[in-house]
């Protein structure tokens, strides 16, 4: 992938990720999250991880986002009325996040291998679905089944939580 496209999608991801936090209206935040995740899916595909990129679009931009929008509509949330922002607390939160970025930056700039470009791949790497599937059903068979049970438990738990109490 050309560096230009990398920076386009990286900036798309980061700007709309910041818009999620900054927007006052929850619907606008949810839609910014979709754009951010689409940019992230493009970054995954730039790393030759086509399966993960497709899953990202299907699960996040498809399922999770519909869930968020449904809940926002269901709860009838309005944009937060512009109450006074506690500037001291906000500055503290932003400062901690900036310190985190600074630390990550210093670690990456001292890391020798982080300055290396990516090594070339063999000719065809588009069959990554087959490779991931083979790993999933051999080395990671037990975790795969445990995740299946987890999804079942989550389904039952959601039904139980959203059920109205019988009076």
């Amino acid at each position: 992938m050309s560096p230009f496209l990398f920076w386009v999608f990286a900036l798309l991801t980061l700007i709309f990720g910041a818009a999620v936090v900054i927007n006052r209206n929850p619907v606008a935040s949810a839609l910014s999250l979709v754009v951010s995740f689409l940019g992230l899916a493009a970054l995954f595909m730039s790393l030759n991880a086509y399966f993960v990129g497709i899953i990202q679009v299907l699960v996040y931009a498809g399922a999770v986002m519909v869930l968020f929008l449904f809940i926002i509509m269901l709860l009838n949330l309005r944009a937060e009325e512009s109450r006074r922002i506690n500037w001291l607390a906000s500055a503290g939160g932003v400062a901690v996040a900036l310190i985190l970025v600074g630390q990550i930056f210093s670690v990456i700039s001292h890391l020798k291998i982080a300055q290396n470009p990516f090594p070339p791949l063999a000719g065809s790497t588009t069959d990554d679905v087959r490779n991931i599937g083979a790993l999933l059903f051999t080395n990671y068979n037990l975790p795969f089944q445990i995740v299946g049970v987890l999804v079942l438990v989550a389904t039952v738990g959601v039904v139980l939580l959203s059920r109205r109490e019988p009076r």
């Binding site: 990398f6 990286a10 990550i104 930056f105 990456i108 291998i113 982080a114 470009p117």
Partner: peptide, 9 residues
Amino acid sequence: ITLGDYLMV
């Protein structure tokens, strides 16, 4: 594009 760029993003 290096590994560090992706890690920074």
